[in-house]
């Protein structure tokens, strides 16, 4: 099977500190891939490299249909079909929920196209569909900044979905959510995976256990191992990285 996304030997050098020391990663079609690892393992940096926020010092990112993307501008990477949800909810607070989604809809993104864009029934239907999926039908005309934290997270996920991406990057999607919200988000992520590949960075082990199929463990800027959660938990290195440290602290 051909991967959607291939990262080859990605290195990131922050003034002598290597945040990533040669990461190789494949993400396949309709896959939900969880990236886990202790703080400072380079998970978020890897997402930053994929979406163009941080430039890799070495290595290649190859995206199906677009070829090598690590030299492309951020907005071109996004147009190529990679959507990114940031850790802190990053939405447009003064625009309404509806407007947030309206701007995110997959469309021509030039100045002229937006000047002449019309809110036709097709766009409306798309927005309604997403609003239902993220459970914000009743908040559509509220300013996004007024939403509860969890709802903002959902809105941002919705803004990524409505772009109809091929690959969705989620950075700690359940941070700050309540138990019920977490579960809903977990099901939402699986729902999404029917239409695109998802790469999730997550800290919460219970959540990973419940909702992951494939897990990649990172440690100090490198991939430690890959496999199902059960396999990964058996891995001695992983146990050492997680528990070994834990013991010392205790």
């Amino acid at each position: 099977m051909k991967p959607v996304l291939t990262c080859r030997d990605i290195k990131v050098d922050f003034d002598g500190f290597y945040a990533l020391k040669g990461v190789n990663l494949n993400v396949f079609h309709e896959e939900v891939r969880f990236l886990i690892g202790p703080n400072g393992a380079g998970k978020t940096t890897l997402l930053d490299v994929i979406c163009g926020k941080t430039r890799a010092t070495n290595g290649q990112v190859i995206f199906e249909g677009s070829g090598q993307i690590d030299k492309m501008q951020e907005h071109k990477i996004a147009s190529a079909g990679i959507a990114r949800k940031f850790q802190a909810p990053s939405i447009f607070p003064k625009l309404t929920v509806f407007e947030n989604l309206e701007l995110s809809v997959k469309q021509k993104k030039s100045v002229w196209a937006l000047l002449t864009a019309k809110l036709n029934s097709e766009v409306k239907a798309k927005i309604d569909y997403i609003l239902e999926k993220i459970n914000l039908q009743n908040e559509r005309n509220r300013e996004a900044g007024e939403l509860a934290h969890g709802q903002k997270q959902w809105l941002e996920i919705g803004m990524q979905l409505i772009q109809e991406p091929n690959l969705l990057l989620l950075d700690e999607p359940i941070a700050g959510m309540s138990g019920v919200e977490r579960e809903k988000t977990g099901y939402l992520i699986h729902d999404i995976a029917k239409e695109c590949s998802v790469l999730v960075v997550e800290h919460d082990m219970d959540f990973v256990r419940n909702f992951s199929k494939q897990v990649t463990v990172m440690h100090e800027g490198a991939v430690l191992c890959e496999g199902s959660m059960a396999e990964v938990q058996e891995n001695e290195q992983v146990v050492e990285v997680y528990l070994g440290r834990g013991k010392k602290v205790c």
């Binding site: 501008q73 951020e74 996004a78 990114r84 990053s90 625009l95 701007l103």
Partner: peptide
């Protein structure tokens, strides 16, 4: 409101 968000939505 958020220039980076705009960029990562695919707008220049």
């Amino acid at each position: 409101e958020g220039e980076n968000r705009v960029r990562f939505l695919g707008y220049n």
